[in-house]
């Protein structure tokens, strides 16, 4: 079981709700992934409240917990107000805090992120910060009140997979007791398995599932990979070696020459 701010979940896959070819594809992907947490966002309503309402009825029908985000925010004030509006709307203290600092890489602005996390934590929010693998930023976020960290493994939407494995490994070692969720950059089930093998607690995915040829099938593939990676981590992985080692014992081998 994974515990996030006192809530226990079985599934270690958090699923984004954007970019699916249809609402039905989103619903089926969520179902087959087994996810218990789906991320949602807030945007300006242009159709009298009906567009967002229809979408949220779909999400409610999935029976999952929602994790609202502050996607697209570039300042502390913008992110804090968005978080407050999300809490008012969704009735949850959970907030995935995104503070974008760079237009091309969508890299989080770690300095503003820490400031916003401090304000929101003091206001009763349970913050899931989208961060990098920077250890100092992680420490500052924990000091600001966060009890979960969500580092990227590559820029959002790139599907590039883990770009800094040693950085992720260091993060796992440094924050041994903190739930760590890889958020952003995962492209394939093997990427998800790789970070789970490193000991990460969960993976947050969106584009890799929504953009697949068959999103529900890909959601299931990811769920299996995440489970496999977690089992492998607990089973104790063999350290790589430079030299070959025969797997078949040579002692007692017949001598024919």
């Amino acid at each position: 079981m994974l515990e996030l701010y006192g809530t226990q979940v079985t599934s270690r896959l958090l699923l984004g709700s954007a970019r699916y070819p249809s609402p039905a594809a989103l619903a089926e992907a969520a179902r087959r992934s087994g996810t218990e947490i789906v991320t949602v966002s807030l945007r300006r309503e242009t159709a009298g409240g009906r567009t967002g309402g229809a979408f949220f009825e779909l999400i409610r029908g999935l029976g999952v917990r929602v994790l609202p985000n502050t996607a697209g925010c570039h300042s502390v004030s913008e992110a804090v107000l968005t978080a407050k509006m999300a809490r008012d709307l969704f009735g949850t203290n959970w907030i995935k805090l995104e503070l974008i600092g760079h237009h091309d890489t969508l890299q989080p602005d770690l300095f503003q992120l820490v400031g916003a996390a401090r304000i929101l934590s003091a206001d009763g929010f349970e913050v899931f910060p989208y961060t990098t693998d920077d250890l100092v930023a992680g420490e500052r976020l924990l000091a600001a009140g966060c009890k979960v960290l969500m580092p990227w493994c590559a820029p959002i939407g790139t599907a590039a997979g883990p770009q800094n494995v040693s950085g992720l490994r260091a993060m796992r070692a440094e924050f041994a007791d903190i739930p760590l969720i890889v958020d952003a950059g995962i492209g394939r089930p093997s990427h998800a398995a790789a970070v789970m093998e490193l000991g990460f607690d969960a993976v947050l995915l969106n584009t890799a599932v929504a953009g697949a040829g068959d999103p529900p099938a890909m959601a299931e593939a990811f769920a299996e990979a995440i489970t496999a990676g977690r089992k492998a981590y607990h089973a104790g992985l063999l350290a790589p070696r430079d030299m070959a080692v025969p797997s078949t014992p040579v002692i007692g081998k017949g001598v024919f020459a």
Partner: peptide, 24 residues
């Protein structure tokens, strides 16, 4: 929501109306 009927507006006020949408 419950404060909207008591919220008096002034000329030039900036109002944001947001609703749920898909997000990652």
């Amino acid at each position: 929501r419950e404060e909207r009927s008591a919220c008096r507006l002034s000329d030039g006020d900036r109002i944001e109306v947001l609703s749920p949408m898909q997000g990652g």
